[in-house]
Amino acid sequence: MRRSKSYRISFVVLFIALVLSLLLNISLGSVSIPFPTVLRAIFKGSIENESWLYIITDYRIPKAITAILVGSGLAVSGLLMQTLFRNPLAGPFVLGISSGASLGAALLLMGASLFSGLVIYGLASSIALALAASLGSFLVLLVVILVANYVRDTMALLIIGLMFGSITSALVGVLAYFSDAEQLQRFIFWSFGSVGNLSWPQISILLGITVIGFLIALFLVKYLNAYLLGENYAKSLGVPLKRSRLWIIIAAGLLAGGVTAFAGPIAFVGLAVPHLTRQIFDTTEHRVLLPAVMLYGAILMLLCDTLAQLPSATIVLPINAITSIVGAPVVIWLLVRKRKLIF
């Protein structure tokens, strides 16, 4: 009934593309390792060169898994927000969740100048940074959920979320103004985004958060489809509006917050991947869109990360810049080719 056969073929192609981009991502890097050796390291777990094995298992594979989680998490979060707000410009960060994470990170990295003595420099390790960013995004998410309970109008909630974002960004600005160059630089590096600094325990936390987010999103699929008609129609179809809206926010918040906490505020993926997917699949059915955006998000992130480390043997470009430089022209090309926005 719903072109299920052609969807199946598309999913098989996407899955193969994911595996290929994963292999490509692990194979390429500043140290050149022959492809058969990489394959042996992945599938057998042992190769002659110890340092190569270390690079592959302790650096490249964790980085690739992080890229997959970050890409798919942001893409699903963006899809949820675009459907909830029925706004093509909505992304995972419209509710101020990323700004909350930024504020948390900024307080840790630059707060020392404001509250001298309170913040110990040693704390600014990557785990403390993830914790501070998580706390920031979680607090903003909590406030948004509380507000969502009171505000009936979803569009008003969107504006309130944007206002939260403005307030937290402004606070970050104030912190930045009073910070010294070194602190500011550390914060700016965090805000560039990175998928490369996560340890296995951190990855398992991120995995846990994203899996919970995906599962909630999966249980919301039926309601998300009803939201396509608007809130009143959704209600007349038996959708519990208040409860479903809350769960959509929780899922989107967990995904965006978790990703931002561990990988920094990565732009573009959450906004653009749902559009990219709708244009290519030509559908608004969430049972198709949800797995599709996960795959596209993961592939895009893996490819961008591969590009980010390619240009030079030693320098790795900020992932945030690459996602936009690579992704935006693709979306523009799709829109120009189809001459309309499928939303």
């Binding site: 489809n225 939201y227 396509l228 608004t284």
Partner: peptide, 19 residues
């Protein structure tokens, strides 16, 4: 109310009635 997503096909729209 205008339906929020006019990109639905007629079949998809009617199928939503079965929710």
């Amino acid at each position: 109310d205008p339906i929020a997503t006019r990109n639905l096909t007629v079949l998809e729209l009617i199928a939503l009635g079965r929710q």
